[in-house]
Computed example of a mutant assay.
Amino acid sequence: MSRDEHASESAAADADDQRLVLPDELRHELKGPMGPIETDADVLLEDVSGPLIAVGDVVTYHILQAGRHPDVALVDERTKRQTVDEEIREVVTDATHLEAENPPAEISADVVDALLEGLEREEPTTILVDGEEDLVALPAILAAPEGASVVYGQPDEGMVHVTVTDDVREDVRTLLEQFEGDATWLWAALDA
């Protein structure tokens, strides 16, 4: 094996170590909303007073249509495992600033790093995720400052608005500790 092949294999092993995988037995716990559900973005935005993180193409689209740019938006050009309409895709990816890989039903170090970079930026940042962005709402809740809003889609119901508090963070940490994989890298990245 050449040195380059060994380095590549080592990097792949590191990437595998730096991801969390949603176990099948935990899927039911994530089906319920973690906050109130709203169908009108204007009404939802009335309750947003701090930074806003939007997770999902349709959620981001509705927030943008209501005149607010999320501080961080994570999109993957899909909704309910189908490609989003061209209008939604164009609107939500118009100002893509970062890209990250995140396989379905996982949370990768790559997407967490992009999320943290987006939160540090002064200007609104859109992250285009190659894979799936659904579970990134969980590390977003841990990374966001107290009082921030994380908004994600609840299929066929509306937008879930989570106001970040210590209690919500504790609930999310408990959930993430049940994921498959070693979360040490995540806690280190989030200083949690």
Rank of each mutant, 00 (worst) to 15 (best):
V59P: 06
V59F: 12
Y61E: 14
Y61D: 08
Y61R: 04
H62M: 06
I63C: 03
L64Q: 13
Q65F: 00
Q65L: 11
A66F: 03
G67P: 05
R68M: 05
R68N: 01
P70C: 04
D71S: 03
D71N: 05
V72Y: 04
V72N: 01
V72M: 02
V75E: 09
V75N: 05
V75S: 04
D76M: 02
E77I: 00
R78M: 12
R78C: 07
R78A: 00
K80D: 11
K80H: 08
R81F: 06
R81Q: 13
Q82Y: 04
T83I: 03
T83Q: 01
T83V: 13
T83W: 06
V84T: 14
E86Y: 04
E87S: 03
I88T: 06
I88N: 01
I88E: 01
E90Q: 08
V92M: 07
A95T: 12
A95Q: 11
A95P: 05
A95C: 11
H97K: 14
L98C: 06
L98Y: 09
A100R: 04
E101A: 08
E101K: 07
E101L: 01
N102K: 03
N102L: 02
P103C: 00
P103Y: 07
E106W: 04
I107H: 15
I107Y: 07
I107P: 14
A109H: 11
A109N: 11
D110N: 15
V111M: 12
V112I: 10
D113V: 02
D113M: 00
A114P: 05
A114Q: 09
E117T: 15
G118R: 01
L119D: 14
E120Y: 05
E120Q: 10
R121H: 05
E122T: 15
E123D: 15
P124R: 11
T125D: 12
D130G: 13
G131D: 13
G131Y: 14
E132T: 09
E133N: 13
E133C: 11
E133K: 03
D134W: 05
L135P: 10
A137I: 00
L138V: 03
L138G: 08
P139I: 06
A140L: 04
I141F: 13
I141M: 15
L142I: 07
A144K: 13
P145G: 08
P145Q: 11
A148G: 13
S149W: 10
V151A: 13
G153C: 08
Q154N: 13
P155L: 02
D156T: 13
E157V: 08
E157N: 15
E157S: 15
E157G: 01
M159F: 09
M159E: 07
V160A: 12
V160G: 08
V160Q: 10
V164A: 07
V164P: 06
V164F: 09
T165W: 11
T165K: 07
D166K: 01
D166T: 02
D167V: 00
V168S: 14
R169Y: 06
R169A: 00
R169G: 03
E170L: 02
E170A: 15
E170P: 02
